[in-house]
Nucleic acid binder design. Structure first.
Length: 470
DNA sequence: ATGTAC
């Protein structure tokens, strides 16, 4: 695949046959070299009807279903622009929630083992059913409609949790009718559960602060203990993606749409199929937030019991979502765009009206989960931004699970992490080995490239003290 | 990511 460097950390794939826009990849030369195969997917996305600007990829780009993970694409709704479930991914509304503890790392140290044991017992994880909130069918419908807002209304959290959650805890346009019976069935038993693979709950310590003022506005200071929760919408989101890819695949021909990859199935955003998916996707988005809200409550109970202290929400943001947003394109006026972010995080700039009032001057918190045993980051949206105000989402895999498990045994890895001072509460040795840090790209390099490309700025670096994994 | 292939 041919590409040219436009400036540091920004590469362009020129528009050619079948492409409706160029491709733009933000990366260091090293990260781009590792991701060359995924450029095919950047090019495929550029063929989507109604695409504006470019088919973008973040520095953590890697191979996904249809869209690359790390892909961002916006289509013009009024011009027949499409929505593609593959541009969101199977784990709809996968995202990150960060909370701060009342105590610093030093005072936590003596009780950390008890905290980790408590979290290990309290956090449902792994494949299949299991969740902290057993609810009925009518309650699930209300949760799909109301997200975190419904969970808090039912006593699972405090009002402030909503002001620090993307969209105030719930997106408004969920359409529960578009969530299939099978998706509901799978979702019923999983509210308040981590899932598996790279999802985790970590107790972390702020190791470095890059911007004191912004960190203070986010409630972060050096040595502060935090809890980071990384999970999504479990089987419910997965089933919704499956259902709607199938429906769009069948309907596409009627709209005269052809795509180079079946998993790029799409229809106009403003069509019955497009609206159906967007409504179901919004319901899954609300499920994902409520899921993280319930897990935060479970962690709070453990912290209260073992430390006497609480956990305060910094922010909750998704990195797998499509949204209808207004953006100026090519120097023109604002247009209504369907912005797909798949493994990419929205990063609203300072002054954006959708930010909570107490964060409006500093920009949106962007939460980047690292790999078990490595660092995580807190970033902030910047005034100029790019790619419709998007940035990276994490490290991104470089080895398959099978390859990863061949490099080290679970028991050996656990011993290594514990020797590094990281308490580990895995579900099984095998699942741990599949997530060994060597299986992922260097999150420091990804964040460096994201900042270098002008997509965000660094606020703080967090290192793990303890990790709970599926 | 995922009742890790209907």
């Amino acid at each position: 695949m041919e590409y040219v460097q436009e400036r540091p950390y920004r590469f362009r794939v020129d528009q050619r046959d079948g492409m409706r826009a160029p491709g733009v990849v933000f990366a260091s030369p090293g990260l781009l070299r590792d991701a060359e195969k995924s450029l095919e997917q950047v090019v495929n996305v550029a063929s989507l009807p109604g695409i504006v600007g470019a088919s973008y990829a973040m520095p953590d780009i890697h191979w996904g279903y249809g869209f690359p993970i790390g892909g961002v694409a916006a289509t013009d709704v009024a011009e027949g622009g499409v929505i593609s479930p593959g541009g969101v991914g199977f784990d709809i509304s996968c995202g990150v929630r960060l909370l701060t503890a009342d105590d610093g790392a030093r005072s936590l140290a003596p009780v950390l083992p008890a905290v980790m044991d408590g979290l290990g017992a309290a956090i449902p994880r792994g494949a299949g059913p299991g969740g902290v909130w057993k609810l009925g069918r009518a309650e699930l419908e209300a949760l799909l409609d109301g997200g975190s807002r419904y969970a808090v209304g039912r006593g699972h959290g405090v009002e402030r949790d909503l002001s620090r959650c993307e969209d105030g805890g719930a997106v408004a346009d969920a359409d529960v009718e578009q969530v299939s019976e099978r998706a509901r069935e799978r979702g019923l038993a999983q509210v308040g559960s981590l899932g598996s693979a790279n999802h985790f709950l970590e107790v972390q310590q702020v190791a470095e602060v890059y911007d004191e003022d912004v960190a203070a506005a986010f409630g972060l200071a050096r040595d502060q203990v935090c809890v980071m929760i990384h999970c999504g919408s479990r089987g419910l989101g997965h089933q919704i993606c499956t259902d709607h890819v199938r429906a769009m695949d069948a309907a596409m021909a009627r709209y005269g749409i052809q795509v180079p990859d079946r998993l790029l199935a799409c229809t106009p955003a403003d069509s019955p199929e497009g609206r159906a998916y967007l409504g179901a996707m919004a319901a899954a988005a609300n499920y994902g937030r409520a899921n993280r809200q319930l897990l935060a409550e479970a962690a709070r109970r453990v912290f209260r019991r073992e430390t006497g202290g609480g956990l305060t929400l910094v922010y909750d943001v998704s990195h797998n979502l499509a949204k209808i947003e207004e953006h100026a394109v090519d120097g023109g006026g604002p247009r209504r765009l369907c912005v797909h972010r798949k493994g990419a995080t929205r990063a609203f700039p300072p002054g954006h009206p959708e930010l909570p009032e107490d964060l409006r001057d500093v920009g949106q918190p962007v939460l980047i989960p690292g790999t078990m045993g490595t660092a995580s980051y807190v970033l902030a949206g910047v005034a100029r931004g790019d790619a419709f105000h998007s940035t990276c989402h994490g490290a991104g895999r470089s080895l398959s699970r099978h390859q990863a498990a061949r490099t080290i045994g679970g028991k050996e890895l656990r011993a290594r992490l514990e020797a590094e001072g990281i308490a580990v509460r895995p579900l099984s040795p095998r699942s741990l080995a599949e997530e060994t840090p060597e299986a992922y790209k260097d999150v420091d390099e990804v964040v460096e490239a994201s900042e270098g490309a002008g997509l965000c700025r660094k606020v703080a670096r967090l290192v793990p003290l303890g990790v709970v994994k599926g």
